[in-house]
């Protein structure tokens, strides 16, 4: 166990760490289709920064630029061969509804990238999110290690989601192709399911949240190999339940003192 020394953090540092973790997967995705990726990324960045700037101007605050992580995640998930206005529309709704109306990064209870990707798929049925490749999964690993070390993702959520997915897959399919499944879920697991603002915020809650997310991944994919859409929806539903899970944990926790009293 690393006795990591707690250090002073601020929101800019959190965003910086998340961007650093996203660099490798972004580069891998970009190399596969440089022009298409560049267009998607440019659209995504312009969209999130436009809304952040607008909200900052209305609220008379300096813009934080935290939307860059949302843009990077979505441009890895979004296909590059579809109309860019669809992406811009979904991303606008995602960023505004999941983040900016609540007051900015960290105040909402959903991951804006998850909401944007879900809306993209809901609104435009012909759009299919990009299935994760082995290369992207491998490129995710250093970032995941960095985020784990900084405490920005929880190993409890990582482990329990993996356990949940594996358990439900074993129950539903005949042959479990573990490496392929791991490659398919790695990126979304680290950057969507484990998002610290969307996941549960208590340790017991994190186990329940991860198991729930893992089960939903299998349920929504309906396939031996989880689909990106399935993981995105699972992350969405699980993070909607996260505050409830935390609330129940708090209630169970308060019982302890009453029992101790009696």
């Amino acid at each position: 166990m690393i006795a990591a020394r707690p250090f002073r953090t601020n929101l800019a540092g959190v965003t910086l760490a998340q961007v650093a973790a996203l660099v490798a997967p972004s580069v891998v995705t970009g190399l596969a289709d440089p022009v298409g990726y560049a267009l998607v990324l440019a659209t995504a960045l312009l969209t999130v920064w436009f809304w952040e700037g607008l909200f900052a101007a209305v609220r008379k605050r300096s813009p934080g630029g935290h939307g860059i992580t949302t843009a990077l995640i979505v441009s890895i998930l979004a296909p590059s061969d579809h109309a860019l206005w669809q992406l811009a529309l979904a991303l606008s709704l995602g960023v505004v509804l999941a983040e900016l109306v609540f007051g900015g990064r960290g105040f909402g209870f959903l991951s804006p990238a998850v909401v944007a990707a879900s809306l993209l798929v809901f609104s435009f049925p012909e759009v299919a999110l990009v299935p994760s490749t082995t290369n992207v999964a491998i490129a995710t690993i250093p970032g995941a290690v960095l985020l784990l070390f900084l405490g920005l993702i929880s190993w409890r959520v990582l482990l329990s989601t993996a356990v949940g997915t594996a358990t439900f897959l074993v129950l539903t399919v005949d042959v479990l192709d573990a490496p392929t499944v791991a490659a398919a879920i790695a990126f979304c697991l680290v950057f969507l399911v484990c998002d610290p603002t969307a996941a549960s915020a208590t340790n017991p809650g994190r186990w329940i949240y991860g198991l729930l997310a893992g089960g939903l991944i299998v349920l929504f994919s309906g396939d031996p190999i989880p689909s990106t859409e399935g993981i995105v929806f699972a992350a969405l539903i699980a993070s909607i339940f996260a505050p409830l899970i935390d609330h129940l944990v708090v209630l169970a926790y308060a019982k302890r003192w009453k029992i101790a009293d009696a």
Partner: peptide
């Protein structure tokens, strides 16, 4: 300006 609380592992 008050930022949001990001639940990190170091807080736990």
């Amino acid at each position: 300006t008050q930022d949001a609380l990001i639940p990190t592992a170091s807080l736990e």
